[in-house]
Amino acid sequence: MKFIHTADLHLDREFEGVVQKTPYRPYKILEMIIDFAISEAVDLVLFVGDNFHCAHPSIKIQSYFADQLARLAEHEIQAAVIFGNHDYYRESVYWIEFPENVTVFKQESVESATLCLKNGEKVTISGFSYKHAHIYEDKISEYPSRNLEGNYHIGLFHGEFSGNNFAPANLSDMLAKDYDYWALGHIHLANQMARNVIYPGTPQGRTKKEQTNFVVLGTLTASALETDFHDLAEIHFETLTLDLSLCDTLAQALTFIKSNLTETTAFYSLIFENYEKIAENLQEAIGNDGLIEELRQHYVIVKLRLQPLLVETVQARIVVPDFTLPAIDFAQIFTNLPPKKEIQKLLGDSDFQAEVMENLQLFASQQFDFENEDKVT
């Protein structure tokens, strides 16, 4: 038996942190997965939750999902689908009928289905779908022991091994079920918890944090399991740290920067270091967005950032005593801003808060000398 395991497609979620218009649409990853399934002549494709980013997906994206699953039927490939915490299932919001080759687990209690594959083998699949945004109780105890009548038994599980909000599980309890394979979802980074217990990660990253963009191609026989991770993503987020110490002029710096942007399907975050020779003009070009606008004519640039200089070049500096940068009270800032969800979401984002502190530290290190070894903490 040959199968593909994917999870966390989030089909209706756009790329985040990208302000440029690009020809790339993240939902296209589903077509690549279906193409891959057909080319590999698999028997089964497993979709392990968060197929959509919200619990009320648009009619258009619902139809797209169903149409792509129907393509598998032409090649006698079956699919099994569960829903996760983002796309928790409510039948009332769906405008589509799932194709006959698709087995959908719609209940929050664990169910099992035995499928007869095109090669004549039988596989039992056990799983559940979220019907609410959170599940606080352990679900593994609901899974039945291995079905000895079929050739294989696979568990579908969307949840976590830590925390309390998303069907918290224990790995030893999962392994005790003696299944041939556990297909996991919810964690967006690939992680092999055990030989046959795998998170593939999201197949198409939407942010710079989601860097392991895989699906699992698995082969089960009576005596063995083989798994391989495959990257089908069209787009990858890349963070590059560029050393500008050999750049004596702005022209040299621009040429050097562009020479490192080699991937047309990469979304770049660039960090510059050792830019002493061009510090003042480089800081100005980043501050007024001149450099990022130039680079965005040919590349997708998420952001630019300067590392603090080891040898400062700013002439007007002030020596101050031992100093610790105070924490920012983002909760207090909330009270002085319009109560808009977009603003609250931005200020509450840990990455945004960290970036604010980094920029403050950079400014302080460039403008002042500190008695405590020139370091702002």
Rank of each mutant, 00 (worst) to 15 (best):
K177H: 13
E100A: 13
A331H: 11
V93D: 11
L244R: 02
T124A: 11
F105D: 05
P144F: 03
H132F: 09
T219I: 13
N372D: 14
G201L: 05
S141F: 09
I33V: 15
I29E: 04
G120M: 02
N260M: 06
A133T: 11
A222H: 07
R146F: 06
H10W: 00
E16N: 12
K2A: 03
E293M: 11
H236D: 14
Y88A: 07
Q297W: 02
N274S: 10
L250F: 08
S259Y: 08
I292S: 12
F52P: 06
I198E: 05
A327V: 07
G150A: 14
M32W: 12
L30Y: 01
L261G: 05
T212I: 03
E226D: 13
T335R: 15
F363I: 14
G17T: 05
G17I: 13
L9H: 07
Y152Q: 06
I301P: 00
S223E: 14
L295N: 05
N101A: 07
L309T: 03
E160L: 06
A133E: 13
I29K: 01
G163Y: 03
T221H: 02
E74L: 10
I29L: 00
Y64D: 03
A233Q: 05
Q366H: 15
A79W: 07
L242W: 08
Y268Q: 04
T264L: 12
D173L: 06
D329Y: 07
V104E: 00
G150E: 09
S39C: 06
A169H: 06
E238Q: 14
Q344L: 12
L171E: 11
A73W: 00
H75M: 09
L225I: 09
A285F: 15
F15L: 14
P200W: 12
G159W: 07
H132M: 09
G150N: 11
Y89T: 02
H86C: 08
N336K: 15
F229D: 08
F214P: 03
H132N: 14
V81Q: 04
L175D: 03
D231V: 01
A73E: 13
I198H: 06
N119A: 01
F161C: 00
E121C: 09
D351E: 11
T255Y: 11
L254I: 13
G120Y: 00
N359V: 12
H10T: 08
D43W: 09
Q361M: 11
I29Q: 04
E210I: 00
Q211R: 15
S109Y: 10
L220K: 08
F128Y: 04
E234N: 03
S172K: 14
P339N: 13
N281T: 15
L30I: 02
I271D: 05
L175K: 15
G155W: 05
A167M: 00
T227H: 06
H230I: 10
Q20Y: 11
G218I: 04
L117M: 07
A364R: 06
E16K: 15
I82F: 04
I286K: 01
I301H: 04
V302F: 12
W182N: 03
S126E: 02
F334M: 11
E358Y: 10
N274R: 14
L69A: 10
T313R: 10
Y24N: 06
L291Y: 04
A327L: 05
E284D: 10
D35P: 07
I38M: 09
K28Q: 12
F166N: 14
F105N: 09
L347K: 14
H53S: 10
V102W: 04
L72V: 00
Q62T: 01
L325P: 07
C247A: 13
S58K: 09
I271Q: 13
